[in-house]
């Protein structure tokens, strides 16, 4: 189990401008959906983008996070599907 704000902190520590939204999918604090918007993703393939987040959450993925659904976006790519 891990608190959602710890996930946010970790990602923000790795990607300074990141906007992070964390959803606890099961209410059990171990299955999360994480959406990250950052300029750090610009010019990167999806796998490189996801790797940045996996690296930031390296320890957590070895323990308290059991499942992670990840969505990464650049600021340019947002807007169309956000209200």
């Amino acid at each position: 189990m891990i608190e959602p704000n710890k996930i946010v902190d970790k990602i923000e520590a790795a990607l300074a401008d990141a906007e992070v939204e964390v959803t606890d999918l099961t209410g059990t604090r171990d299955h999360y959906e994480v959406e990250v918007v950052s300029t750090a993703f610009e010019g990167k393939t999806l796998i490189q983008q996801h790797r940045l987040i996996y690296d930031a959450l390296d320890e957590e993925l070895d323990g308290p996070i059991h499942a992670l659904t990840l969505e990464t976006k650049t600021p340019d790519a947002t807007g169309e599907n956000n209200e």
């Binding site: 299955h31 993925l61 070895d62 323990g63 996070i65 059991h66 499942a67 992670l68 659904t69 969505e71 790519a77 169309e80 599907n81």
Partner: peptide, 22 residues
Amino acid sequence: MSEDDSNSISLPIVGDEETGDQ
């Protein structure tokens, strides 16, 4: 541009992309 992430493909998203730690 129509990159809409929440679009219509409906495949199951339940279950675990497990890190399989324990």
